[in-house]
Structure formats: C-alpha cells, structure tokens
C-alpha cells in the first residue's frame, strides 16, 4: 500500500508521553515511523483516556474523557488516530463505539462536543501502531528499511490483553499473529506461547501483588520453555509489570538476568539502524542484541 504522505493524528496518552513510564515506547514508535516516512501530529492538549479505572468512579465522565480527544482529532481534520498504549486504544475505541451505537451516550456527549454528532465523526478511526505497521506499511516497506537482520534470533511477542480485545478488529482476539509477522520481516524467529494474550494483571499489581506475580510467573515460564532470547512488549503497563515481576519473582523463575524485555518498536528500530538514544534503549541491552544481528546495509 502506498502510505507516503499519509497523515495521522497521534494520541500518546499519559504513559507513552514524554513524562510517562512508557516514554521509550513512544520515542521508539515515532522514530520507526519517521524512518518509514510517516509523520504524525500529536493531538494538542490531549487528556487522559481514563482507561478502565475512571469508569469505575464515573461512567459518563469516562466517555467525556475519550470524547474530548476524539473531538480534537476531528478539529485537526485528522480523523485517523494512532495510539500505542493498549489501555488508551481500548478505551478510545469503546468511547467511539458507544458514541456511534448508543443513543444515550451520544446525546450526552454531543451536548458538549457537537462535532462528534456531525457526519464527519463517521470518519474517526482508532489505529493501533501494530495494525498500522502490518496492514498499511506492510512487509515490503519494512523489509526494505532493515539494516541489521536478526538472523533467527528467537523473539517472544507478548501482546497482553487489551490490544486485541474486545473492541479491536485487526487481529484474532486470542491468537493474533501481527507481531510475529513484524518479527519475521526483520529476520527474527517468532516464539509461540499460548499465553501471549493472557493478562499481566494490569493495575492489580498495586492491589493484589501476589496473585499477579503468579500469573506472570506462568507467562515467563512458557516463554522460557520455548527458548525465547528476547521478549517484546507492546504495552507500557505489561512492560512495567514484567520488569517488576522479574525482580520480585527472583529465583522463582529461571529467566536469564540478561534476557532483554523491550518494546517491539525498539527492536524494529535497532534493526532499522536507528540510534539507541533515539530509541531509549539501554546501551548494554542494545549491544547484547546487536551482537546477534547481521549487518545488511551501512548504518
């Protein structure tokens, strides 16, 4: 598909913004897109999507949170919104679905944001960066951009739960294959696990730590069993939880201390030859990985 000149708005959300814990996911995604010739425009003065937490306190309010961002994207005349964080992706998708399908919500929302009641709102699309890379950019463009091939490095893709469920539309809700495609395009060997879309526990890490640790233990074990040499994630919270669990679980799991857990966009960025500062990847992890890559073009 010809994506040159394609314009999207970009919703970083709290986690992937420059102050968030997932800022490196944000940096690396933008760097990868830039390398592919795609520029995105950040929605100005965006607000938190409310994820699944704010709804517990105030349902109506949670739709308003999403709606404000949607309205801004429409005002920018960039109705296709690129999102990285799965929680934002889910809750913005939900807001959009409800506005389009639920009259009660629509009436409430359009009182404040009338633009969402206009025909233009039917052009709104929430796009996850995985979806965009696989279905719009595609195999050829990604392969062409590769400068270091992974040459069979065993990569485990951990999707977490909310990228593919329940409002998502671009891949199977339980057994997605998009990340595996990207991994193989850059030369990696995808490692399968039946737990790849099992939940990491999310925010429950703060309230029910022991329970969540047990869940993540299983996830680690299944990847270790398959011989994963690197785990890639696509969610700031999964990422944090995996890292935190790795320290907490300690000897309960037999995960190599050096096993890199990075964002998939950082991995793609490395193979594109993008600098490690731009990707926000630590030097020793980068070196560890680059060691196993094969140079195919000058970086």
């Amino acid at each position: 598909m010809d994506t040159s000149g394609k314009a999207l708005s970009y919703y970083p959300g709290c986690s992937c913004s420059r102050n968030g814990i997932g800022r490196h996911y944000g940096f690396s995604s933008l760097a990868v897109l830039r390398a592919l010739g795609i520029t995105v425009s950040e929605i100005e003065d965006w607000n938190c999507c409310g994820s699944n937490l704010y709804r517990v306190v105030d349902e109506k309010g949670s739709y308003l949170l999403g709606a404000r961002n949607l309205a801004k994207a429409l005002e920018m005349n960039l109705p296709e919104i690129l999102i990285l964080c799965p929680a934002c992706f889910l809750s913005m998708n939900r807001t959009l679905t409800e506005i389009l399908a639920n009259t009660k919500v629509r009436n409430e929302i359009t009182k404040k944001y009338s633009i969402l009641g206009s025909p233009a709102s039917s052009r709104l699309r929430i796009r996850h960066v995985i979806d965009f890379l696989v279905n719009d950019i595609g195999e050829e463009a990604i392969k062409n951009r590769v400068k270091r091939r992974l040459e069979g490095l065993k990569i485990a893709a951990y999707y977490g739960c909310q990228i593919t469920r329940p409002y998502s539309y671009f891949d199977d809700p339980e057994f997605p294959t998009s990340l595996e495609k990207i991994i193989s395009w850059i030369g990696g060997q995808p490692v399968e696990s039946p737990l790849k879309t099992k939940c990491c526990g999310g925010m429950l890490m703060l309230t029910n730590e022991e329970e969540v640790l047990t869940v993540i233990e299983k996830i680690f074990n299944s990847y270790v069993r398959e011989g994963a040499e690197c785990i890639v994630t696509a969610c700031p919270l999964c990422h944090l939880n995996l890292e935190m669990a790795r320290t907490r679980l300690g000897k309960r799991i037999s995960v190599d201390k050096r096993l890199p857990i990075i964002y998939f966009t950082q991995l793609v960025g490395l193979s594109f030859g993008i600098g490690i500062d731009e990707l926000g990847i630590s030097k020793n992890i980068a070196e560890h990985l680059i060691e196993k890559m094969v140079l195919t073009a000058t970086v």
Binding site: R165, K198, C199, G202
Partner: peptide, 13 residues
C-alpha cells in the same frame, strides 16, 4: 469483582 483486571478473555469467549 475486585480481582477482575478487565482483560476481556471471558468477553470474547
């Protein structure tokens, strides 16, 4: 209800 992390595996099944 407080243990539900809203991972929606139940919902899609």
């Amino acid at each position: 209800i407080w243990l539900c992390s809203t991972c929606y595996l139940c919902a899609v099944r």
